[in-house]
Nucleic acid binder design. Structure first.
Lengths: 337, 337
DNA sequence: TTGTCAATTTGAAACGTTTCGGTTGTGTAT
DNA sequence: ATACACAACCGAAACGTTTCAAATTGACAA
């Protein structure tokens, strides 16, 4: 049987109350007693029972982080930041991957409503919108990058219109006019915003805004490749492509390579997100970098604020930044000029 | 205040005991009562308190999975399999990433010894060897792919000698004689085994076993690239390279491309692990595939067996398989012959 | 009526902490 | 001496479940 606090107390010749304080609130106890209790604890191999502790103090000091998919290169840095920040602030983190099925999301949702975690940060664009508008609407939840719950749930994000605008402006400044867009998964607000941002930027710059230049890549490699193939079949194809994610951009570049089309000589690419794939692709991918690490930090700070009953900003917008790499170049005409 | 079981009981006009059984052991209660309790529960928005439950039943139905790094392409599939299997068997999973620092590993280790989880599967080659040989050596732990604890801790793995042998034999059968090896992180048993396996296979086939043909790539991209550069500076370089991981192989291939060396025309590559990187590289990478999904399943089954006090096999060895792709080709002389 | 039995239900204990309110004992000021 | 302040400690309650052992109920046979 695992030794409990009362075993320790007996061994040290004090009451359970004193043993508890000696271990978790040492200043409230005399020096000798403290030492006696500590010695007793180590000598019998005492380990606190966190479950009992949680029940008593009504906190678990644990957070839940809901991520769609671990395979997606977008999330690791975000997850690391969340974990770092949480641990530094005294919380453990449970990470739940929900993309596989709705059952997963439910299973993890239970953890929150059943009090096994104190709060939750959601990076998951999936369903479940009304889960936290029921009888207990006040569970601590923060969402990152994608609004899925109502406005009462705080959000940390970037301005996705701006993401698209930066990309389009960069390409336009290199002389490109026929700029195509490969869009992300339609059910994600961020993907829709990037598409809208692309349209707005094209319009504002007076560039051709053709429906055939916009293809849906659904946010994954296969979709990106398929979209690129369609673009290449156009009678008058694009000279540059803005892809809503790096993974789609890499897949699209691979299609070009397979067909002997040179990047960036024949066609330029800009991705978005700033994931590792784009750094190791050939050529390396120009991208609009999304500050995922900072988003993770801010989200956790916000969440812990919520848990502690502090007022937190409902909407935090982080700045994005374009990273110029090898995948885009001026048009031939621009070079000639 | 969140409603508790006693609120539900009051509302339904029964005792707490009956309310509990109505919800968690419905067959032990009369039809009408069951319905009354359930109605009361939903009407007041009752959610069970899992912490209290865990304290009482002395189980958390939660497992801990320790992974070195989420950035490493090796682990996602393993993690998914673990999560799937665990959820299907009624357990939740906490995933802990430990590579960042020793503190992390300790923080997560606490969860196990403090009773917040029932058991742990370790995919982590780091230190902590003696953590489970103390006063409570009997905590349920299963390790995957890398032996770090004593033989009393069950292990699920592949035969890493065989991994290397498959690769070397494949290259030899294509006419290669000067086969180099880029090894993985020295502190991992599996990396050492692959190096030994490479040596054994070379020797058995009567191929040149030169120290200069073995470089340490430390298991990551940068190391792999560096190792490749050294190999290319050799007066008589290799015609083929077996890399202990796909990521090192991809980095090494990138080095070759940058220098205008054609793969597989000038030099062939075989990686190991079977991660996604190798599928999307150019050329696509021949690799010795490690059945990570199956390993995850077996590990969880084993762990739950341990938790339930069943006897489990101390050592499970899974088969590996070579996947032929575009990165290796017969030597010119072999082609000519 | 009484007794027997099974089907339901219940009170109370238990899980291992933390913490409130109260008691003890020591030393200091009166 | 008495009163008082204060530090150190302790008993017991509480957190919200589950479950044991006992009690209640109702049906039915003797």
């Amino acid at each position: 049987m695992r030794p409990t606090l009362s075993d320790v107390a007996k061994l040290a010749g004090v009451s359970v109350a004193t043993a508890s304080r000696a271990l978790s609130n040492p200043d409230l106890v005399a020096d000798g007693t403290r030492r006696a209790v500590r010695d007793a604890a180590t000598s019998c191999g005492y380990k606190i029972n966190l479950v009992a502790r949680s029940l008593r103090i009504q906190r678990t000091d644990t957070l839940l982080a809901l991520v769609p998919d671990i395979d997606n290169a977008f999330y690791p840095r975000l997850i690391h930041a969340i974990e770092d920040t949480a641990l530094a602030m005294g919380y453990a983190v449970i990470i739940g991957f929900t993309a596989k099925s709705e059952k997963y999301r439910e299973a993890y949702g239970e953890l929150l409503s059943a009090g096994r975690v104190d709060g939750m940060v959601v990076m998951d664009g999936g369903s479940g919108v009304d889960r936290f508008t029921g009888p207990q609407p006040d569970l601590p939840v923060v969402q990152v990058f994608d609004r899925v719950y109502g406005p009462s749930v705080p959000l940390v994000r970037v301005d996705d219109h701006q993401v698209a605008e930066l990309a389009v402006h960069q390409l336009a400044s290199m002389g490109h006019r026929r700029i195509a867009h490969i869009a992300g998964a339609d059910e994600q607000q961020s993907a829709r915003d990037r598409r809208d941002g692309y349209r707005a930027a094209m319009q504002r710059l007076g560039l051709p805004l053709e429906d055939q230049l916009v293809k849906n890549g659904h946010g994954h490699r296969a979709g990106g490749a398929e979209a690129m193939k369609q673009l290449l079949e156009l009678p008058q194809g694009p000279t540059a492509v803005f892809c809503a994610s790096d993974s789609m951009a890499c897949a699209a570049m691979d299609v070009c390579r397979d067909r002997g089309i040179h990047v960036p000589g024949d066609i330029s690419f800009i991705g978005a997100d700033g994931t590792a794939e784009g750094m190791f692709s050939f050529p390396s991918l120009t991208t609009v970098d999304v500050p995922r690490a900072e988003a993770g930090v801010r989200a956790v700070e916000k969440l812990i604020g919520l848990i502690r009953g502090q007022a937190v900003a409902p909407d935090t917008v982080l700045p994005v930044e374009i990273k110029l790499r090898g995948s885009c170049a001026p048009t031939r005409t621009a070079v000639a000029a």
